[in-house]
Structures are given as structure tokens and as C-alpha cells.
Amino acid sequence: MQLLAIISGKGGTGKTSLAASFMALAPLAVGADCDVDAANLSLLLSPREEEVEDFVAGKKPAVDLARCQRCGRCQEVCRWQAIKTGEVNLIRCEGCGVCSHVCPQEAISMQDEISGQWFVSATEYGPLVHARLRPGAGNSGKLVTVVRKRAQELALSSASQWVIIDGPPGNGCPVMATLSGVKAALVVTEPSQSGLHDLGRVLDLCHQLQVRPYVCINRHDLSSHFTEIILAWCHQQDVTTLGKIPYDTRLFDSVVAGNVPVLTSDSPGALAIIELWGQLEDRLTKEG
């Protein structure tokens, strides 16, 4: 079984379109949508939900106002300014539980907080594990870990060859949770200063976590100048570049129609994705 994470640093570079396309191109694949606060992979794969589970992110305090003497001890110790005379601000609260430990009246209890759900669904191209984090909820890294682990289990039990992971943007907590235990990542960038800047940061993270990156440039023809700069920079950093995908409105049209981009046309963009997958398959099979 081979895990491939698709990440980017900068958002909106085309991770999800590529992940859906690879699901369709890989012979035996399990999908994992690890971008849990903007979970879009399922929108292209018409999933049929087979398992639904609540996600417990952690615990949040509940105050028994009959016991509370308004002494203010909880407010003193809380570092998030999340509790005040018996009232909890659930958005600010980090769930550390220190308030409940210090309350002299034992008026505060910590209770499970359900902050989303995760699903195992069947799709035409293999099983998909995906999730929905309640908007505004924290601890997305923990939900990412649940999704990735469940996809790995499914791949093992179904003898799937591939786990295709659609990652979140950035390089913080949910990206690190996505990459844990992953050996290879496709880093999707775009030809601009912003693309290059964020690529540099996410490659540093790959290096720290010992993940082998492969870089691909999406919409390369929007700036051939920056495409050249990024290619040269990657070469200098000894990072493998695998593919260039042109700006192609037909890929876009298929996303708007809710279809897997690579399946609906033989446009230049679709052909470039097919070629990219071929190269990845080849590399990952050889390099492990």
C-alpha cells in the first residue's frame, strides 16, 4: 500500500481536482479528504455514505450554576479568557480543563464535545473517508488523523494499492496531521511569487517530517516566467518536479458540473493530469 498526500501551502492551487482525478486513474484506491474544514473531494465523487461516526474533539466545561459561588477562581486560571462567573465562551475555550480542576465547589465538569462527523462512503472509484468539522470548531488536526487512519485501515483490509490523500492548505496543525506516517507528497503550486513563497515553506515542512516531495505546477501558462523560476529553484534545491498542467477552462467546467476533471474531456489539462499520474505511479512504485 502506498500513501500519496496532495498538499500545497497556498490554497486554491487545484489539490482537490487532482485528488479526484487520481482516484479515478489509480487501479485500486482509497480516498481520504483531510481538508476537513473545507471538505470538497466528496463533491466530485458522488459518495454513498455507509458509515457515519460522531467526532469528539475533546471536552468542554459545563458549569453547575447551583453550586457555583462566583468566586472567580476559574477566570483567574483560564489563559484563553473563556470563562467568567459561570459562563463559558465555547469558541475561546481550548478544553484544557484547568478550570474544572481548580473550582473549589467542584461546580465545573468536563463533557465530551461533538464537533463534527466523519464518514466512510462508497464511490465509483473506491472507498472514500471524509469528514465535516462544525464550522468554527477547533482541533481539526485530530479529525484529520481519524480520517487518515481510517483510510489506511480500509486500504489494508481491502488490499488497495493506493491511499490518495487530499490535504489542507497551509503548513500548520492539520497539514502536519495529514503528513504523519506519509512518505511521499505531491506539492501543487502555481507560477507566482505567492506560489513560490508558500512552496518554500511547505517543502521545509516536508524536509522536517521526512516526507519526499514531488512538485507540480498548475496553470503554468499563466506565467511562463515564474514557471521557469520555480523549476530552476526546485532544481537547485534538489526537489523533483514532475508535471506542468496548463490553464484549461474545461477542467474547470467539469468541476462546476460536479465531475472528476480528468474523465470528462481529452483537453490539454486532462492529458497533463493523466501524464502526471503515470509519472507518480512510476516513481512511487520504484522509490517506495
Partner: peptide
């Protein structure tokens, strides 16, 4: 981007929030 803790931290306390979107699913 997103809708989890970093985004909440950035927008909370603001008077107005502009949400940028595109006409896709």
C-alpha cells in the same frame, strides 16, 4: 483560509467580514 480555529481567531471582533468565493460547487 478554512473555517477552523485560525480563521475564527482572525475574524472574531471584526465589524464587517467580506467572504470571497467563486461560483463553483
Amino acid at each position: 483560509p478554512g473555517t477552523s480555529c485560525p480563521m475564527v481567531e482572525a475574524v472574531s471582533g471584526c465589524d464587517v467580514c467580506l467572504l470571497v468565493t467563486e461560483p463553483t460547487p
